[in-house]
């Protein structure tokens, strides 16, 4: 059974719907990616999952819980780590405090310090800067911090909103490599929303293509990579 099963999701902002009958799933420990151009509705999908978008139809099933109508903080507490667009860094807190905020819902002291070690292992740069104000970190470091903050929740599912946005190619490759590691080592399922289709398709095992709020194509990532239309519009060769 899939970890996350979204069926017929419809919703939007105010009175306008931006998502229409969107269905997709993320397997236990799997990586799913949602691709699409600017304004296709990718971010809105993630917002809908976390109760930050008006949902007017469809169901969102996460393991044994239905997410429809729940408050954001309750959804997160079920084990969904959301790395939002713009990274959502607490700029005035230190790096370490940012991570402590990520672990706010947990009580297991030993587990938390273990996770501190783990994310510092993934991103040694954060350890170097752990007492520094997060606002002084570079864009790439802030992205690392955002992912780490979400990991401190010990999520079963990680939602990533364009982690490559605005970063140098080398940094992006680094981050994608570590996401692969996280997925391998911790068996965290990942839902990745990306404009950088080639990287995303390399990482993911299944993929969905979103256009103006509708799923227009779906299948194993490998198949989408080879599809003529995807190649031409999103991969550029």
């Amino acid at each position: 059974m899939a970890l996350l099963e979204v069926t017929g999701l419809t919703g939007g902002y105010g009175v306008t719907d931006v998502l229409h009958d969107v269905s997709f799933s993320v397997e236990q420990g799997g990586i799913t990616t949602i691709l699409g151009a600017n304004g296709a509705g990718k971010t809105s999908v993630l917002r809908a999952l976390c109760g930050m978008l008006r949902v007017s139809g469809g169901t969102i099933q996460f393991a044994s819980d239905k997410l429809n109508g729940r408050a954001t903080e309750s959804i997160v507490r079920l084990g969904i780590g959301h790395v939002p667009d713009g990274r959502g860094t607490f700029l005035n807190l230190t790096t370490e405090e940012n991570l402590r905020v990520g672990a706010m819902t947990r009580k297991d002291k030993a587990g938390i310090s273990e996770d501190f070690k783990r994310v510092y292992g993934y991103f040694p740069r954060l350890q170097e800067r752990r007492h520094q104000q997060a606002g002084t970190l570079s864009g790439g470091e802030q992205q690392m911090l955002a992912i780490s903050r979400a990991l401190m929740l010990r999520p079963r599912l990680l939602l990533l909103d364009e982690p490559s946005f605005g970063l140098a190619p080398l940094v992006v490759q680094d981050i994608f490599r570590i996401m692969r590691t996280i997925n391998d080592e911790q068996k965290v399922a990942i839902l990745l929303v990306e404009q950088n289709a080639s990287l995303a398709l390399e990482l993911a095992d299944s993929a969905y293509l979103l256009e103006t709020g509708r799923v227009v194509m779906s299948g194993p990532a490998r198949e989408l990579r080879e599809a003529e239309s995807v190649r031409r519009s999103y991969l550029g060769y």
Partner: peptide, 8 residues
């Protein structure tokens, strides 16, 4: 918003 997403 970020705080909510951290479960606060």
């Amino acid at each position: 918003v970020s705080s909510r997403l951290s479960g606060i």
